[in-house]
Computed example of a mutant assay.
Amino acid sequence: MAIIGKPLYGTHGELLHDGKYGIFPFTQQERAKKSSKNKPAGTLVTKALQNVNRDAIRDMLLNKVIPSIVSKWPASLPKNVVIQWDNARPHQIPRDEEFIVATQANGFNIEFVFQPAQSPDLNVLDLGLFRSIQSLQYQSFPKNVDELVEKVIESYNNFKPEVNKYIWVTLQRCMIKILKAEGGNKYKIPHMNKKKLENLGILPNQIEVERSIVVEAVEYLNTMFRPATQGNHEAEIEDMEVDAD
């Protein structure tokens, strides 16, 4: 499970926080049942967790994700944290008291939201982090799970803050594309020569959205959905017409 946020820069462009909060493997250790050439029976062996279910996700959030965010959160930012994840079946928000207390401890307010369905480009991890990790990790040839975990963590640590910055800009551009596509996903991921713009000192941190795009999107939504009170009112009118007939 990887956690990444938008990197934080100072007024003079200096890096204040790289946006990296950690990456944690779903693994467990078991004792080898049989002796082999490399290890005797009883040796602890790391194995991938075969069933990443709701309980495994809760344990990961409670013992890895939340503590990591709390310990690395920039002091200059408000402690209202929104974690977006995809709609995988095990991704269910725990509702037990222990978990709720953990999300509100130390003055934090940690909330969870789900990525919109059929919107892969709204997952910032898929926009750049995982691709970068794979390109680095594929340069090695791990022989076991321990070596694989080590290489993945190393690749995560080597993930450059400027690349992280670029993918957050791309995320904003994708949001605009989705607005223009009326919520659809039939568009190409936009490219804007971000490295060149940064070298020129004109790469925006926040992408401005034209007012007309927002207005058109709202008007489209209004044609797709109508308030419940409006629907009830129209139904009452139809009933009155039927009664009159």
Rank of each mutant, 00 (worst) to 15 (best):
M1Y: 10
K6R: 15
K6F: 04
Y9T: 04
H12A: 12
G13L: 02
G13Q: 06
G13S: 04
E14M: 03
L16T: 08
H17W: 08
G19P: 02
G19R: 01
Y21I: 08
G22D: 06
I23D: 05
I23R: 00
F24H: 11
F24V: 03
Q28T: 12
Q29A: 04
Q29D: 12
R31N: 01
K33R: 12
S35Y: 13
S35G: 09
S35N: 04
S36K: 15
N38I: 08
P40M: 01
G42T: 06
T43P: 05
L44M: 10
T46Q: 09
K47Y: 02
K47D: 00
N51S: 13
R54Q: 15
R58G: 01
D59V: 01
M60P: 01
M60G: 06
M60L: 01
M60N: 05
L62T: 07
N63W: 09
I66T: 07
P67R: 10
I69F: 13
V70K: 15
S71H: 14
W73R: 00
S76R: 05
P78H: 01
Q84S: 10
W85V: 07
D86K: 08
D86L: 06
D86M: 04
N87E: 01
N87L: 03
A88D: 15
P90Y: 11
Q92P: 02
I93H: 04
R95L: 10
D96Q: 10
E97F: 09
E98I: 08
F99E: 02
T103P: 06
N106P: 00
F108L: 08
N109A: 12
N109R: 07
I110C: 00
F112V: 00
F114M: 11
Q118F: 10
P120I: 07
V124M: 04
G128W: 12
F130T: 06
F130I: 14
R131A: 15
R131F: 05
I133V: 15
I133A: 02
Q134P: 00
Q139K: 07
F141T: 13
F141R: 14
F141M: 15
N144C: 11
V149W: 09
K151R: 14
I153L: 05
S155L: 09
S155N: 05
N158I: 02
K160C: 09
P161K: 05
P161N: 07
E162W: 04
E162K: 11
V163F: 04
N164D: 07
N164L: 00
Y166P: 05
I167N: 09
Q172G: 08
Q172W: 06
R173G: 11
R173D: 15
C174Q: 05
I176K: 04
K177C: 12
I178D: 07
E182P: 00
G184H: 03
K186H: 11
Y187G: 03
K188E: 15
P190K: 10
K195C: 06
K196Q: 09
K196L: 15
E198Y: 06
E198Q: 15
L200C: 04
G201C: 10
L203K: 01
P204D: 07
Q206D: 14
I207W: 14
E210W: 08
R211P: 00
I213F: 09
V214K: 12
V214I: 15
V215T: 14
E216H: 09
V218H: 01
Y220H: 13
L221Y: 07
T223L: 00
T223K: 03
F225M: 03
R226E: 14
P227G: 11
Q230G: 10
G231W: 07
N232P: 00
H233K: 11
E236A: 13
E236F: 04
I237S: 00
M240L: 12
D245Q: 11
